[in-house]
Amino acid sequence: MLHIYCPYCGENRDQDEFKAKGEAHISRPLDPMGCTDQQWGDYMFFRKNPRGVHHEMWYHVAGCRKFFNMTRDTVTYRIYETYKMGEQPSVTAESLAGGQS
């Protein structure tokens, strides 16, 4: 069971309090009606689903009710960081491959 640091509450809490919400940093197209069916389908359904470092969104549903982001390894389940909505990750697959974190 994951142990998750909520960046808003500033505490590590049990996974029980949270809900995983899938891939993070998916922006809604600014002009939906200008999108083709393909572009709209890509936005709604097609995902990175990486094996390894992943940026995903979580919801502190039984806590502060805030959505936030997490950088997590989908194989080891190690959590590298959590960060607030609107912020960018400081750990990425590239930064880890490059030896920086």
Binding site: K21, S27, R28, M57, Y59, V61, R65, K66, F67, M85, G86
Partner: peptide, 13 residues
């Protein structure tokens, strides 16, 4: 409730 919070917090803060 979650749906409202989702859109407010992630797209239209």
């Amino acid at each position: 409730m979650e749906w409202l919070e989702l859109w407010h917090q992630t797209e239209w803060p």
